[in-house]
Computed example of a mutant assay.
Amino acid sequence: MTHVIAIDGPSGSGKSSTSRGVATKLGYAYLDTGAMYRAMTWAMLQRGIDVNDADAVAAAAADVTLTSGTDPQDPTIHADGVDVSEPIRGDEVTAAVSPVATVPQVRQQLVDLQRELIAGAADGIVVEGRDIGTVVAPDASLKVYLVADPVARAQRRALELGVEDAEAMRQALARRDAIDSTRKTAPLAQADDAVVVDGTHLTLDEVIDHIVGLAQR
């Protein structure tokens, strides 16, 4: 049985860097489910779909082919054969991803794909997102809910994206949290059996080592 480590948490909590680090140390595969929703959003924008029209998004999504690489050293994401690793981090996709991610048909389509990738991981896999421990992999061997102080989250995300206004970033993250936490389908939530890890005052390496320790125990 594949050893699954689920790492959930809000935007800017450090899930991606942490998950990749944990996967690398353990020799596991790695899956960024957030990139999949971003890639789907990119595909909607390329097709000229109104991302606020849930029915239109649901219909168009069925024709989108996503391919996720699971190498933590070189994670890749393709939409309809196009490498979208860079464009999915741009402002246009970032502004549009929330309404796309709330469409139930999109979530079910991507959850099915995520479960296929998890099942195909030979030894183990670290999966990051917002509903991994609660929806995608409720039987995960280890569930981590990664959090950080809102100011720290904003500073990290601003630095990551090259944005100077950390306060504007904090407000943007707060809006994203509200959307993610209140959507009807698979909202952002801490699994009952998840271990909460607060990375506010820890270095990235310290967070990684802590989670690796939990996994090894």
Rank of each mutant, 00 (worst) to 15 (best):
A6S: 06
P10W: 00
P10E: 09
V22C: 14
V22P: 01
V22L: 12
G27D: 08
Y28R: 07
A29Y: 05
A29W: 03
G34C: 06
M40K: 05
V51Y: 10
A60M: 08
T65L: 12
L66Y: 04
S68D: 02
T70D: 03
T70G: 06
P72S: 09
I77C: 04
I77N: 03
D80N: 15
G81K: 00
P87S: 04
P87Q: 01
R89W: 06
R89P: 02
D91T: 10
T94S: 15
T94H: 05
S98H: 01
T102C: 12
V103T: 06
Q105C: 09
D112Y: 00
L117V: 12
A119N: 11
G120T: 08
G120W: 00
A122F: 13
D123M: 10
G124P: 02
R130E: 12
V135E: 09
A137N: 02
S141E: 12
K143A: 11
R157H: 06
A158Q: 10
L161V: 08
E164Q: 07
E164P: 05
A172P: 02
A178R: 06
D180G: 12
A186L: 06
P187N: 10
A194K: 00
A194V: 02
V197K: 03
G199T: 10
T203E: 15
E206T: 10
V207F: 07
D209Y: 01
H210Q: 15
G213Q: 13
